[in-house]
Design a protein around this nucleic acid. Structure first.
Lengths: 340, 340
DNA sequence: GTGAAAGCGCTAACAA
DNA sequence: TTGTTAGCGCTTTCAC
């Protein structure tokens, strides 16, 4: 190791010169060591160590065309849902010695576009993206240029893309059916904008379950739309419900666990543990601490890690592989919050 | 947009041919549009669109040497602490149009080494790494080859690296001083292995605070080492304490919030809410749901996002910039769990 | 088994 | 203003 910072990294020809061989030979000891004579190989390896030579993957990529980088665009890496997915992706890529370039679009189409472009310029093998809107044109364009694209957490429909997603209608239905079984015939659903596909689908599912149970879907599931999908909005909406003429419902279905956390906080604020325990709550995502809340939260779990893993798997599949749309089934985890 | 997948991406010379100009001219409209005649520029731009040409950043990089990718290695991206840090990094990099390659080392030096090598081969401008052990040799080597390296969440000491970290001794002291102030003269610290720098430092800090308050540090802070730093270990350790001859202490300081969550779970399991409220608990990290637990958790907060942001800032600093070691101060967030 | 050389896509220097 | 060309570091024929 040299003590002083080098201005430029050593190249293969520097090594060749030092070892007194041709660059092709150095390349050979790097890539097919078996075909070079032991003596020469030793000499080259010594030179490599001596110069602390690190092969330039960029030059290699330019030459051979192929590359081992995958771009991932999620809405926000701080969201545990996405970090679990990202970890699944990473774990699958590691098996293939690929690396992951990651970006958060913040659900902003402009940011998404910027990152897609950046990644494509960098020549990624493929792109895993949680689309920020319903417009898949740019993704299709990218795919038409030979970059594999897999949609994450959104069904690709008939667009011609591969995708890995979870059945959100089924999730909504699961939650609602459970509440109905527990005797609730009127639930409030704290939901996000229907521009968010998941939100719309979960409501559809909930209403479907109501119908299936012989209830009037519109009456059985009253929707309240939130500005944001965090705990603060959950608090706000719950307080508003409590202050409304109708008062609090006997059951609340939250479009995600953070909102549910807010609901719990608001209930405790308003009426202490007694009130908190008197209304049934179901969340969505089954985040880590759902089981650790004041009242452990019943929640719909999605196979996050597996989604990421599978998506990376599709991406890495041989070129010949067909477009495939994987839909995972969610699962209900019942805890105290819906025990009545 | 072509319907059919292209076998190969269009190159700058394809565009030049179509537009009837030289490659240099195409390069110019890409990089210095102002110096090319409007008419030619329009023609070239049309050709670019026509072929849906995407400049090859790899070739560009090979040519100009400079690049806009930064490698980040954390222990586990699922850990909220690291995802917050990563988001800080990402936010800073976005300002400079840089992208982030991310990997989780799982605290395994071999994995760390592999990723560092991968990133270096890819020619990253720099590396932000949460070191998996005390051995910084590889990082120094990498830096000696001209790759900027900034340590994350670990002080670089006199190694010659830049670093951004949080003062863990101060954090431990903060927690202990608070408990002392609340009247506890004997606390149990649920800690991890001292091989983990943070664990060792937090204990040192806690004992320092005890000394400062005139207590015998060894007696005031009794350490119990955990196998793992998750809630399951917290449960296990707490049950063991409860069953021991000495019984439960009046206060427990947990090396992180997950452990604290486990402690709360165990206490509730053993003696219900009453027991839970009878022992003071302080956690570390101030994770999102610390405020949402059955008994909201007092915790030591670290400026995670800012750490990442600052680290990226150091990395992006002009070459001339000096080695710098930034140490952030933690902050105590007091909630009900330590109110007695 | 090894060397020489072409060429991947691009930029920058220089020529026209 | 535009064209021509060398060369970034590497792999891969093709001779030797």
């Amino acid at each position: 190791m040299t003590t002083e910072a080098r201005r430029k990294r050593a190249s293969i020809s520097d090594v060749a010169r030092l070892a007194g061989v041709a660059v092709g030979t150095v390349s050979n000891v790097l890539n097919r060591p078996d075909i070079v004579a032991p003596a020469t190989r030793a000499r080259v390896e010594a030179a490599i160590k001596e110069m602390s030579f690190v092969p330039n993957a960029v030059a290699r990529q330019l030459r051979v065309g192929t590359i081992t980088t995958v771009g991932v665009v999620v809405l926000d890496i701080r969201n545990p849902f996405f970090t679990e997915v990202a970890r699944g992706v990473e774990d699958r890529l590691a098996l293939a010695d690929h690396t992951l370039m990651l970006a958060s679009s913040d659900d902003d189409p402009a940011r998404e576009r910027k990152y897609l472009q950046l990644f494509e310029q960098h020549g990624v093998v493929g792109l895993l993206v949680v689309p920020s809107g319903p417009d898949l044109d740019q993704l299709l364009e990218v795919q038409s240029r030979g970059v594999r694209v897999v949609l994450l957490d959104a069904p690709a429909g008939s667009s011609g893309l591969s995708s890995v997603s979870v059945d959100d209608e089924a999730g909504g239905a699961l939650a609602m059916a459970h509440l109905i079984e527990r005797g609730h015939t009127q639930v409030v659903m704290l939901n996000g904008s229907h521009d968010i596909r998941q939100c719309a689908a979960r409501l559809v599912g909930a209403r479907r379950a109501a119908s299936a149970a012989g209830l009037d879907p519109e009456a059985a599931v009253r929707e309240v739309q939130l500005r944001a999908l965090d705990s603060a909005s959950g608090v706000e909406a719950t307080l508003a419900l409590a202050d409304a003429p109708d008062g609090l419902p006997s059951a609340i279905f939250c479009v995600n666990d953070l909102v549910a956390v807010g609901v719990q906080r608001a209930l405790r604020l308003r009426g202490g543990t007694a009130l908190l325990e008197s209304v049934a709550i179901v969340g969505y995502d089954d985040i880590d601490i759902a089981s650790e809340l004041a009242v452990p939260l019943t929640s719909v779990r999605q196979p996050t890690h597996e989604m990421g893993y599978r998506a990376a798997d599709l991406l890495l599949a041989p070129e010949s592989a067909e477009i495939e749309q994987v839909v995972f089934a969610p699962e209900l985890v019942v805890r105290a919050s819906s025990a009545r």
